[in-house]
Design a protein around this nucleic acid. Structure first.
Lengths: 208, 208
DNA sequence: TCACAATGTTAGGATCTCTCACATATGTAA
DNA sequence: TTACATATGTGAGAGATCCTAACATTGTGA
């Protein structure tokens, strides 16, 4: 088992120069390759070619390394969602559908990171940073829903509709990455399914 | 830290008598208390008052212990779902709503087991048993959907509708146990939300 | 320049999973 | 009942992990 060239780096000096960033990258790769549970600090160290004690100069513990990867995932996820609605006119179903599509695509493309972002029971340490990031993104979604219903501020009704949509794509994302949809080939039919769902939850919205 | 009385048992004989069952029960308890990731075989042994080598006479490895708990969860989950529709007439939305309610309640009541049942990336060993059990339950749900739409066998359209419903409750279950719904008090409003969702996905169904 | 902060390493403690050899109980056949 | 196989426990220990402590090397600001 040799080292991935994207992380490996011949080091002639005692100090590393860029260890923190390289450890995060190694962590992200390992979380994808092995899953968040099977990630080990020791293996990330091997990839970055440092001793197993080195990470503790940069991170409090293993959890903090994973947290960094999760937070980065949240930020990229949010960025993607904001970018993906841009081509479509405000208040249209197309924007909602695009959000759902990218949500599920992210989960399928990076299931390890997606799991870290959401399904993490690690109480206190995680909740501060991640829920902050998550709430920001969700507020953006709720505003999109509000605009579909002809408003420019979020009402309780908008929150109800947004929650239905979020639950649906979130559930579909997890069912996909947990391999529960073998017989219901969702990959092919995802697009019409998303459109159908969006229309059922937001029948009032105009459609382009 | 003392031992839970439900598992502890004074043992005067060399042999245990009921170790396998008690280990499974200890595993289930620990999965709930600490989460599936932080479960350790060693601690289950302490609770059952046996050496750390004892479990390997009954289980291949740690994964097999967890698998046993997950499979038991699947069976109980399925039983609950079958029982909960019984009071309502066939083909009514009430049955669908009852299914959604019990689905989410199970997740909230036993988040550790629920996570084991679904969010488990442990490839081969798991997929055989658990997906078998899961598919059985899902077929039952699909049949309920079909009956709501006036059929007694499952069509592609039924599968589409069932998938929407499953995704929605599955997503809501995970968002709940992952504590992502702090601001959207779902606990109180779950019932009307479920009814709303069911009506949107199955508008053709009669409602009692 | 030179003390000090930053960032590496080595060594080791505590814990964990799992295996191996051995101990003890239980059941079955003569 | 006795003898032996099988089932099920224990103790010891290999190998891996997370993390800390003490020490080594380098970069930097007064």
């Amino acid at each position: 088992m040799n080292i991935s060239p994207t992380v490996q780096k011949k080091r002639e000096s005692y100090h590393h120069g860029d260890l923190r960033a390289q450890l995060i990258e190694a962590t992200r790769q390992l979380v994808e390759e092995k899953g968040p549970d099977r990630f080990s600090v020791a293996e990330a160290c091997r990839r970055a070619r440092v001793s197993t004690a080195a990470p503790y100069k940069h991170f409090k513990d293993k959890t903090e390394m994973l947290l960094e990867v999760a937070a980065d995932g949240m930020r990229r996820h949010a960025t993607e969602m904001i970018e993906v609605v841009a081509p479509f006119p405000q208040g249209t179903l197309e924007r909602i559908i695009a959000l759902g599509r990218i949500y599920i695509r992210f989960a399928v493309a990076e299931p390890g990171v997606f799991r870290l972002m959401f399904s993490w029971a690690d109480e206190d340490q995680v909740d501060e940073l991640l829920t902050g990031l998550g709430e920001g993104t969700y507020t953006f979604v709720k505003l999109e829903v509000a605009k579909c219903l002809g408003r420019d501020h979020i009402t309780e009704e908008d929150e109800r509709r947004a929650l239905m949509l979020w639950s649906m794509v979130h559930g579909m994302a997890f069912l996909s990455i947990d391999n529960k949809l073998k017989n219901e080939r969702v990959g092919d039919d995802l697009e019409p399914l998303l459109a159908d769902i969006a229309a059922r939850v937001l029948p009032e919205a105009k459609s382009a």
